[in-house]
């Protein structure tokens, strides 16, 4: 089962290596990992999507908590979360195909970020499922490159994950 784990860490060099190393050596599989600084520049937030049983999840949380640079670990149920990922997709696109790609982009609320004589680069921020769906819709045109950021997640409603 997929689990979303948010980790607040000290914004030091080497912290990401410690977190990633922990997952690797304990045999926890990471599906996606995204990291960025928070409103407090001394704290970074890591969002990890990992696969595993409840036992694995419990161990992940406990072992993460043991890392000295880890300030807080939270595991969320999917329904509690607002999850977003950013994707850039470069496709082959002849001038004659532009109109239909633009129409497609409008439907899913993607942006046209770059355009050349025979390519187009689209940008979409959405849930993982919808991003995958968009990618499939573009596949017939010929995908030249896909870059995804990994998911970030935030709890819905008024609560926030702070110190």
């Amino acid at each position: 089962m997929k689990h979303t784990i948010s980790v607040l860490v000290e914004n030091h060099a080497g912290v990401l290596a410690r977190v990633a190393g922990l997952f690797a050596r304990r045999g926890f599989n990471i599906d996606s990992l995204a990291v960025g600084v928070t409103d407090d520049e001394k704290i970074s937030r890591i969002t990890i999507i990992a696969d595993g049983t409840d036992y694995t999840l419990e161990q992940i949380e406990k072992q993460l908590n043991k890392l000295i640079d880890v300030i807080k670990v939270r595991h969320f149920e999917n329904h509690e979360l607002l999850t977003r990922e950013l994707v850039l997709i470069k496709i082959a696109c002849q001038p004659s195909q532009r109109a239909e790609v633009i129409a497609l982009a409008e439907i899913v609320k993607a942006k046209i970020s770059d355009i050349t004589a025979n390519t187009m680069t689209l940008e979409l921020s959405d849930s993982v499922d919808r991003i995958k769906n968009f990618e499939e819709l573009l596949r017939p045109y010929g995908i030249k490159e896909v870059v995804r950021t990994g998911s970030i997640a935030m709890q819905k409603g008024g609560v926030s994950m702070k110190l």
Binding site: G14, A17, R18, G21, R25, I68
Partner: peptide
């Protein structure tokens, strides 16, 4: 050495 010993330390410091 901080990288190599990471799996076996409670914590480590590379003093910069």
């Amino acid at each position: 050495i901080t990288g190599a010993a990471e799996p076996f330390v409670k914590h480590s410091y590379l003093v910069k």
